[in-house]
């Protein structure tokens, strides 16, 4: 009995913190989304689910929603395909493993503003690195592509974003791979396994837990994606780059235009929360597996 009481005593502070800083604010967020409120001294007005009804009919919201999904799935696809590819390559025993790890991770420690300035230079139609390189190797037609024109800018931003995030997830996956005893791979070598066999039959199942966590982290990052596309827009984020996070900010925080619709912005926040939460539950359910011991 004392044991149980003691446990309760120790758990209480953590529980209280969780309650104060997570559950209650989450509850409040939902509560605020039921109001029309500018955030200035004026009274907030209760409007029920009107903000959600407005969201449903708001083309800009759906644009942001679509962009967020594209980022989540298309971006996620490339982030993980590349991260896995590099994982295989780096673990194939090539030289300079630490160097590659550093190089790939580097974008994560550079400020997003510097990164977007760099990508703006890469994508510049005339003297940009991409087009001059393409022209240098004789791809003149392709070298005239306007990568940041309104039709292309989202995908251009996404490519840059994939580049940034690949390094991060590469590090996570590599850390998982490093835990796998080397004799697993040696045994496979003797059995005649090639790189793909080793990746598919040994690496993937044995870093399953790391993959699950990586997917969850990606979902959280992608759903609340704000910084990078925002910085990619420099002075003003073009609508083509709106994510839910950016639209929330535009609607609630008077970015350039005095739109001060805090209640509406909060409703967007609630949508993001629900989206992230349900995707995480889904991923965890789909990827549920026995704990491995090795």
């Amino acid at each position: 009995m004392i044991g149980k009481r003691l446990i309760g005593l120790f758990v209480t502070p953590a529980l209280a913190i969780y309650l104060c800083f997570f559950l209650i604010p989450t509850g409040f967020t939902f509560y605020f989304s039921l109001f029309d409120w500018s955030g200035f001294g004026t009274e907030a007005q209760f409007i029920g689910f009107d903000n959600y009804r407005r969201l449903w009919n708001d083309p800009t919201f759906w644009l942001s929603f679509r962009n967020t999904l594209a980022l989540l799935f298309v971006g996620g696809f490339f982030v993980f395909v590349l991260a896995f590819l590099y994982t295989i390559l780096i673990n194939s025993g090539i030289w300079g493993k630490k160097l590659f790890r550093l190089v790939f991770f580097l974008p994560n420690v550079v400020s997003v503003v510097a990164l977007s300035a760099m990508w703006a230079y890469i994508y510049n139609p005339r003297y940009g690195l991409l087009n001059t390189s393409l022209k240098a190797v004789g791809l003149d037609e392709m070298g005239r592509t306007l990568w940041t024109s309104p039709d292309n800018i989202f995908w251009a931003m996404l490519a840059a974003l994939v580049w940034v995030f690949t390094g991060f997830f590469l590090i996570l996956l590599l850390a998982g791979v490093d835990k796998i005893p080397p004799d697993m791979y040696e045994a496979a070598d003797l059995e005649g396994a090639n790189l793909w066999h080793k990746f598919w039959y040994i690496t993937v199942p044995m870093i399953w837990d790391v993959m699950t966590i990586s997917f969850v982290i990606w979902i959280i990052n992608a759903v609340k994606m704000f910084e990078f596309p925002f910085a990619f827009g420099f002075l003003q984020v073009p609508q083509q780059l709106y994510t839910l996070g950016i639209y929330l900010y535009i609607m609630g925080f008077g970015q350039r235009d005095p739109i001060y619709q805090l209640g509406y912005a909060t409703a967007i926040g609630v949508v993001m929360l629900v989206l992230a939460f349900s995707l995480i539950v889904l991923v965890r359910r789909l990827m549920r597996r026995d704990q491995l011991e090795f």
Binding site: S38, F40, G41, T42, G254, D257, P258, I259, Y260
Partner: peptide
């Protein structure tokens, strides 16, 4: 100016 007229001033604050 426009921001104020749409924000602090416009909201009567």
């Amino acid at each position: 100016m426009d921001g104020l007229n749409g924000g602090l001033v416009g909201q009567g604050a």
